[in-house]
């Protein structure tokens, strides 16, 4: 079968769930007839109509708050926040309301919803439309977090996200939207909390997520060709649940760890990964751990400047070389 884009797979993943379950409804800005500003909801309005695909005003609090109220009362809303930077406009719902309500009511309610959002840099949108903010969600106990790297995983993780009785923040990476891959098989479901070994190798483990997965794979190919180093690449796929067991298993073979993350080094998710490794896998390591992360600056506009501050293949290769010669 012909390859499909990551972008089309978002709409495909949502459509499969909407066909399966009439409780699934979508809401967000420009998601209806317009098909979304990133064209990730194309075809949904035509197939499911205005009673299941709802255009909203520019009201992020109302979008996510209404999704929460609907989720508490029998629906499975899929809310879109256009750019992940805009999560800050409705952060109360993701920090204080959605993740806490089940706990603080002693389990009286559940909130089965998905908040989808376009995340990350690489498209030259400047500081307020480019940041990778998956670490924001990671600071909040009570949210599940998915961030797929391939078209098939988009569909498979969307299936798990929509079917989950827990709230899920679903990060779709802007830099991957045009990328292509094998289409998802019928009834494809990727469980949360299962990292994928996307390249096997015995010398170093590269832990990646979303945009940094293809980056790590390219770096691994160069390291193999130029240095004879066999890098294993792990795609975490979800941050919560976090498959640290897969990381530790890989380190049993490689003994070297490089985490590749687009969010800023300060407070980035790699810090959580390496803290578990330091605690539970210290004796597996033959070298220090390295984190190739976003720099601790706002995202600059110019492509050349952006390359300075987000992970690149060169930075990953350099980090691995610093460990193999350690």
């Amino acid at each position: 079968m012909a390859d499909v884009t990551y972008r089309d797979s978002v709409a495909e993943g949502i459509a499969r769930e909407m066909r399966r379950d009439p409780a699934v409804v979508c809401l967000g800005e420009d998601i209806g007839a317009a098909g979304g500003v990133f064209k990730t909801t194309v075809g949904l309005f035509e197939e499911f109509g205005p009673e299941r695909v709802w255009d909203t005003p520019i009201s992020e609090q109302a979008i996510v708050g209404a999704a929460m109220g609907a989720a508490m009362t029998g629906m499975r809303p899929v809310a879109e926040i256009m750019f992940s930077d805009f999560l800050a406009c409705c952060w109360d719902y993701l920090a204080n309301e959605i993740p806490k309500v089940r706990y603080m009511t002693g389990g009286q309610v559940t909130v089965p919803l998905v908040v989808r959002t376009a995340n990350g840099g690489g498209l030259g949108f400047g500081a307020q439309h480019s940041q990778a903010v998956e670490n924001w969600a990671l600071t909040v106990p009570g949210l599940k977090i998915a961030a797929p790297s391939t078209p098939a995983d988009v569909v498979g993780l969307m299936a798990s996200a929509v079917r989950s009785d827990d709230p899920v923040v679903f990060f779709e990476h802007k830099g991957l939207l045009a990328s292509k891959g094998a289409p998802a098989p019928d009834d494809h479901v990727v469980p949360f909390g299962e990292a994928a070994v996307v390249r096997e190798g015995g010398d170093v483990t590269l832990v990646a997520l979303a945009s940094t997965v293809p980056l790590a794979l390219t770096a691994a190919e160069r390291l193999a060709a130029d240095d004879g180093v066999a890098a294993e690449v792990l795609d975490l796929r979800t941050l919560i649940p976090l498959d640290v067991a897969a990381v530790l298993r890989s380190l049993e073979r490689t003994s070297r760890l490089v985490v590749v993350e687009e969010n800023p080094y300060q407070g980035g998710w790699g810090g959580t990964v390496v803290s578990v490794v330091a605690d539970e896998g210290f004796e597996l390591l033959d070298a220090p751990v390295r984190r190739v992360a976003g720099a601790n600056v706002p995202l600059p506009f110019a492509d050349a400047l952006e390359d300075q501050v987000i992970p690149t293949v060169d930075k990953v290769v350099d980090a691995v070389r610093s460990l193999t010669t350690y």
């Binding site: 708050g65 929460m68 989720a71 109360d92």
Partner: peptide
């Protein structure tokens, strides 16, 4: 945060105003 979900009282919220959109969502539902 007193809540009696079984009889439709879906929570007491302590971030001022946050629950108004939730009620809108319940009505939408």
């Amino acid at each position: 945060h007193l809540t009696k979900a079984g009889s439709g009282m879906l929570g007491s919220y302590a971030i001022v105003g946050a629950h108004l959109p939730m009620a809108v969502g319940a009505a939408w539902s």
